[in-house]
Design a protein around this nucleic acid. Sequence first.
DNA 1: CCATGCGTAGCAAGCGCTTTCTATTGGGGA
DNA 2: TCCCCAATAGAAAGCGCTTGCTACGCATGG
Lengths: 350, 350
Amino acid sequence: MTVTLADVAARAQVSPATVSRVLNGNYPVAAATRERVLRAVDDLEYVLNGPASSLAAATSDLVGILVNDIADPFFGIMASAVQSEITGPGGRAGGERMAVVCNTGGSPERELTYLTLLQRQRAAAVVVTGGAIEDAPHAAAIGGKLRRLGEAGSQVVLCGRPPADEAPDAVALTFDNRGGGRRLTDHLIGLGHRRIGYIAGPTERTTTRHRLEGHQEALAAAGVPDDPRLTLHGPYDRRSGYDATLELLRRAPELTAVVAANDTVALGACAALRDRGLTIPDDVSVAGFDDLPFSIDAVPALTTVRLPLYEAGARAGRIAMGREEEPPGGIATVHGELMVRGSTGAPRRA
Amino acid sequence: MTVTLADVAARAQVSPATVSRVLNGNYPVAAATRERVLRAVDDLEYVLNGPASSLAAATSDLVGILVNDIADPFFGIMASAVQSEITGPGGRAGGERMAVVCNTGGSPERELTYLTLLQRQRAAAVVVTGGAIEDAPHAAAIGGKLRRLGEAGSQVVLCGRPPADEAPDAVALTFDNRGGGRRLTDHLIGLGHRRIGYIAGPTERTTTRHRLEGHQEALAAAGVPDDPRLTLHGPYDRRSGYDATLELLRRAPELTAVVAANDTVALGACAALRDRGLTIPDDVSVAGFDDLPFSIDAVPALTTVRLPLYEAGARAGRIAMGREEEPPGGIATVHGELMVRGSTGAPRRA
DNA sequence: CCATGCGTAGCAAGCGCTTTCTATTGGGGA
DNA sequence: TCCCCAATAGAAAGCGCTTGCTACGCATGG
């Protein structure tokens, strides 16, 4: 039925061992023999049996990339970068690693499922992107899984996620969300804003918490009171930004600025302000986070914190492949850059 | 070193066969025995060896999703939809299928590589998204690979790609790019536009060609001459839209509308027009394609053709899982909907 | 009281490949 | 001329799991 190594061997008049060696290319095989084998492979349209090969060799060429939401460019960009470092530029068939991205949808159960599946497949490496859930049992479960993955020989790299206590040998490339949040609000305060709404991401996520803490830090440093009614939580989507902005306007019509958890949320905020007849930034300034590609095309262009998503992903990919040295202590912080654009300005209604 | 089935069997005082059956759950095992086995699994932190299991069972639970560019929401949305139908909502560990997305970067070689890799892994199904390359050798190579995948037992579904002659048993969910392009330009002509620039995608891609053909069809139907100098090709990115728009303006300053290959390109076009001091839509109308989430947030909101990406992806996923009947003849066309918004209007400078 | 059958569990033969160890060769140095 | 070694190919033992078939035991029915 299906063609096996033995069939190829028979046709090439050599032993299965020789065919295997030709295919793996890590053992001397005479040119003529190799030639003959390769022709047999072609003639028979032979395709290696992956499971059999992984079983015998006790290794696999799978690299898993976990993302929270594959439809969100934030993750898409990182995944694409990781992947570009895993798969060679040419994308050759032989001896290549195969990068697969797994969409957890932000669900800790699915995150765990995928990690188990990756462990089952004896993945060569696993890159986990995006913030972590702060629920203790889940964090412990996932941390434990990451540790076991590491022990089983998979290189584990966290990208845009704080280090996990339970998995000390995982490399972590952490985004400086707190610092970015701090600088963003500093900027707004510097412009003269005092009543600043904050639309945070979902609770219980490290990213959400860190960005919010940066914001609060800036308020505190400037002696601006932190009115808890001006902070709202919601998912990282446009809708959340829209609704929250309306609610903020209701709660505090005197608001002069809105900081959003990320650019997508900020876009929703802009839409809500426009629908209310308010001008950006004259009536209300808006700021985002991440600097996704579309942010520069918003009108006015969005002030935001640029995270080097592609660069960080690429670095994570290289570390996963063992092509770049791990940072000292296995931890590196990736900083964001404040991008001041048209969506923020001095408050008019001060 | 690593825990195997045999270790679990020993600890539970049963045979390996029984452990296997408990884990796969498709054979009667007494409750007490099952209990004992499960405890042993837990105690030992046993994780099934995927390759071994796939080898023995001659099947795998992998489902591959091929995308051209994972950082592009067009693909992200489809991938996310496919995946949501593959993985159960809960994301349970046992007996689940694992959806993996493979980023081809639009390179035919890498597309082929991934297909081979999936064939190696004996993937249960493969969903290929996005337009195909029209280069004959590549098309034949990929078509042949798809056919062989099908013959090897993988369910092959094309989503947003025309059927491949070489792979007759692959199900194809095709987007009506030609019809969408036609309606878009019809709309513009109806508004009174006669000098319409067209920023097409990369040459040699079915999507590019079909959308462009729709545009030309509309021009012809209205008796508007098709000036070839008004059609430019470029990649599906913002930069391309920006540059091409400047070039179009240079070639034909009297231009009153620009149709872009997709929304991302359209955003670039808008930016270029703004930078040139032109107003949308009073000076120049702009239209996109796809209706990606950010399109509604452009200012003015983008007129575009809405493609039901999520729905199509979900359907592809269900078909891949055998949970939905294949369309008659294995082919279904998915239509787009014209979304008229603020970025198009009657020409002022007519 | 023995034959029949159902409900469980075990045996053992692979699944298709990798890899260690061993065999065979031809050629050069002593 | 002979011996030894480098270069190359083969034999065979698994890798860890699944599954068809067999074996066992107990309850039932004739």
